[in-house]
C-alpha cells in the first residue's frame, strides 16, 4: 500500500468525519436529521445539472444546495415543516436521475457522486475541506447558544425584540453548503451516515451537550478510521464499509445511557 497515495484522501475525509457529526447534532436538535439526505440529493442533482450546462459540478452542487436552503422556510410555511425535506429529497433525486438518463456522461458522474470520490481528493480539495471544516466548526460554535435557545424557548428572540430568521436562515445555509461539499467528496450515503449515526448515539449516551459534541466527534473519527482502513485492506468500496462501520457502532453503543 502506498501510504503517500492515500494520505491526502484520508486527511480530506477526516476533515469531514470531524465536522459532520457536530453538524448532525445541531440538525438532530431541531429534528432535521433528514436534511442530510435531502441536501445531499439536491447537491447531487445540482452537480449533474451543472455538468449539463458546462458549469463545474462542484459549483452546481453548492448552488443547488444553497437554493434549497433558501427555499426551505417559504416551502415549510406553505407545505408544512414535516414535508420539506422529503420533498427536497425527491426533487434532487428526480433531477439527478433525469439528467443521468439523458446525458452520455451523466450516469458515470452521478454514480461517482452517490458513491463518493474520496480517493480522487487532491491537495487543493484537501485545503478547501480543511478551511470549510474549520470555518464550519467555528460558525457552529458561534451559533450554538442561539440554536439551543430557539429549540428550547421558541419565544426567546421575540421577547427580546430580536429577529430569529438570521440565525435560522444562516444555519440552514451553512448546513446545506457543508453537506453539498461533503456529498461531492464522500458521496450521499457516507455523508448521511456521518451526519446521522454519531449524533444518534450521542443523544442516547451523552450526559450533556458539550460532552455530547465531543463524543460525536470521537465516534465520527472512529467510524471513519475503521471504514477507511478496512476499505484499503480489503480492497472494497469505502462508502458501504463506512455504512457497515456506522451500523456496528449503533449496535455496540446503542444501549441508552444511565
Amino acid at each position: 500500500m502506498d501510504a503517500d497515495l492515500f494520505l491526502v484522501p484520508f486527511l480530506a475525509g477526516l476533515c469531514l468525519a470531524l465536522l459532520l457529526p457536530v453538524l448532525g447534532c445541531y440538525l438532530r436538535l431541531h429534528d432535521e436529521w433528514l436534511a442530510a439526505l435531502s441536501y445531499s440529493h439536491v447537491a447531487a442533482g445540482g452537480a449533474l445539472l451543472a455538468m449539463l450546462g458546462g458549469v463545474p459540478a462542484q459549483a452546481g452542487g453548492l448552488l443547488a444546495a444553497a437554493a434549497a436552503a433558501l427555499a426551505k422556510r417559504p416551502l415549510a410555511a406553505r407545505l408544512g415543516q414535516a414535508s420539506v425535506f422529503p420533498l427536497l429529497l425527491l426533487a434532487g433525486w428526480a433531477a439527478g436521475m433525469l439528467v443521468a438518463a439523458n446525458h452520455p456522461l451523466a450516469e458515470r458522474v452521478g454514480s461517482a457522486l452517490f458513491d463518493g470520490q474520496l480517493y480522487f481528493a487532491d491537495i487543493p480539495r484537501l485545503l478547501w475541506l480543511l478551511a470549510a471544516s474549520c470555518g464550519g466548526l467555528w460558525l457552529l460554535r458561534r451559533l450554538s447558544r442561539g440554536l439551543l435557545l430557539s429549540r428550547l424557548y421558541p419565544d426567546h428572540f421575540r421577547l427580546r425584540g430580536e429577529a430569529a430568521w438570521p440565525l435560522q436562515g444562516g444555519f440552514d445555509l451553512l448546513a446545506a453548503l457543508l453537506l453539498a461539499l461533503a456529498t461531492t467528496t464522500l458521496g450521499v450515503m457516507a455523508t448521511f451516515a456521518l451526519v446521522f449515526v454519531p449524533p444518534w448515539l450521542t443523544f442516547r449516551r451523552a450526559g450533556g451537550w458539550r460532552r455530547g459534541l465531543r463524543l460525536a466527534v470521537l465516534l465520527g473519527a472512529a467510524i471513519y478510521l475503521v471504514a477507511f482502513v478496512a476499505a484499503l485492506a480489503l480492497d472494497q468500496p469505502f462508502g458501504p464499509l463506512l455504512g457497515l462501520a456506522a451500523m456496528a457502532a449503533c449496535i455496540l453503543g446503542g444501549r441508552r445511557g444511565p
Binding site: L29, R151, Y153, R160, G207, R210
Partner: peptide, 26 residues
C-alpha cells in the same frame, strides 16, 4: 427584556443537556 415561562415544557426528551447547561443558556 422579558422572560416567559409557558405551560408547555421545553422539548427535553432525548436531548443530552444538563441542568447546568440549561442555566448557562438562559
Amino acid at each position: 427584556r422579558c422572560a416567559l415561562q409557558t405551560q408547555e415544557a421545553p422539548p427535553l426528551a432525548g436531548l443530552p443537556l444538563s441542568g447546568r447547561e440549561l442555566l448557562a443558556l438562559t
